Computed example of a mutant assay.
Amino acid sequence: MRDGFQDAQDEAPRARLHYPFAEGPQDGQAVDVAPGVKWLRMPLGGSLAFINVWAIEEDGGWAIVDTGMGGSTTRQAWRAAFAGALGEKPVTRVFVTHMHPDHIGMAGWLTRKFQCRLWISRLEFLMCRSLAADTGREAPEDALKFYRAAGWEEEALEDYRARFGGFGKALHALPDSFRRLSDRDLVEIGGRPWEVVVGSGHSPEHVCLWQKDLKLFISGDQVLPKISSNVSVFPTEPDGDPLTEWLTSLAAIKARVSDDVLVLPAHNEPFNGLHARIDHLIGGHERGLARLRELIAEPKRAVDVFPVLFRRKIDHHVLGMATGESLAHLNCLLTRGEAVREADEAGVVWYRAA
């Protein structure tokens, strides 16, 4: 699953966000965002183009936060960074915000190359291991039943069968052990305490890092300035309610993390305006839920609700993400008692307003 699937109402309130850096780092180079903290980029390709990663100077080398997608292109980018901005100093630790391949993909390569430890939350590590184990498997019948219930046609199911098990292909072999990060941990990095702030919804136990003295908040995909992170229901937990988790997490972060931080996101540029951005993300999803309630006055399948949630045309490239996010909104309405569902004789699930 790729990050940053933009929803229909996610036009960032640009006037309320401030971007302090005129331009981002070039290949092999870095931008200093605070004393001892550097901003680097790793290539992704596609619409997102790159992921931001962060290097924090400490005794003996660099603590790295997030790693880029697995593969030779990212490996070459890291080698250029070590030869350039990082001055040939070794990696002391690798921190990963969450288990998506653009964040954890090179963790195994970095930890083995420098004989250092991966630091990550337990659920993210275990979920990543679980998904990587699907590599090479045939698509399970439970998953095909899940997408048939959402309204997929046979052509889409065949495409899913062909692509299933690709998660592990975007990863360098994972480390066999890790150091656990838990919410509210204080971890010394570069001689300063960084507080672990955990969110969920986009992924199960997403780690953010907050340094109060430097007023920095490494947000991963939990808060992005210009796009909304994908929040999806998956076949492994068809009755899950990740959107409620997402909205609850965002509200908790706003209540806990001060608004004067410089947010260091995984995508787009560092920005000021954390609380305004959180308000807009929550408000956008609530507006989407309101439109969805109106639409399902007459019964609808998950694939029928795309127009009220997404601006873009949904093609086969994003059908899985769109279906997962639509089901996240529908399951949220079910949790709130604002919708009901029933399956027809073919196993297709129809949703209507309660």
Rank of each mutant, 00 (worst) to 15 (best):
R2K: 13
D3Q: 11
G4Y: 07
Q6H: 03
Q6D: 08
D7A: 08
A8L: 08
Y19W: 07
E23G: 11
G28V: 00
V33T: 00
V37T: 03
L40Q: 03
G46Q: 08
A55F: 02
D59A: 14
W62S: 01
I64N: 06
T74R: 09
W78Y: 03
R79C: 05
A80E: 08
G84M: 05
A85F: 01
A85V: 06
V96M: 05
T97K: 04
M106P: 06
R112M: 02
Q115H: 12
R117S: 10
A132Y: 01
K145C: 07
K145A: 15
Y147H: 11
A149E: 12
G151T: 07
W152I: 06
E153T: 13
A156Y: 07
L157Y: 13
R163L: 13
F167S: 10
G168S: 03
L174P: 00
S182R: 15
I189G: 04
H206W: 03
V207R: 04
K212W: 04
G220P: 09
S232I: 14
S232G: 06
F234S: 07
P235F: 09
E237R: 13
E237H: 12
T244R: 11
A251T: 15
I253D: 10
K254N: 11
V257G: 06
S258G: 14
D259L: 04
V261A: 02
L264M: 07
N272M: 10
G273N: 09
I278Q: 03
G283V: 00
H285F: 07
R293L: 09
E294F: 00
A297N: 07
K300I: 03
A302G: 06
V308N: 04
L309S: 05
H317P: 08
V318I: 14
M321A: 12
E325R: 06
S326M: 07
L327T: 11
A328Y: 10
N331F: 05
L334I: 15
E338Y: 12
E345A: 13
G347M: 03
Y351W: 10
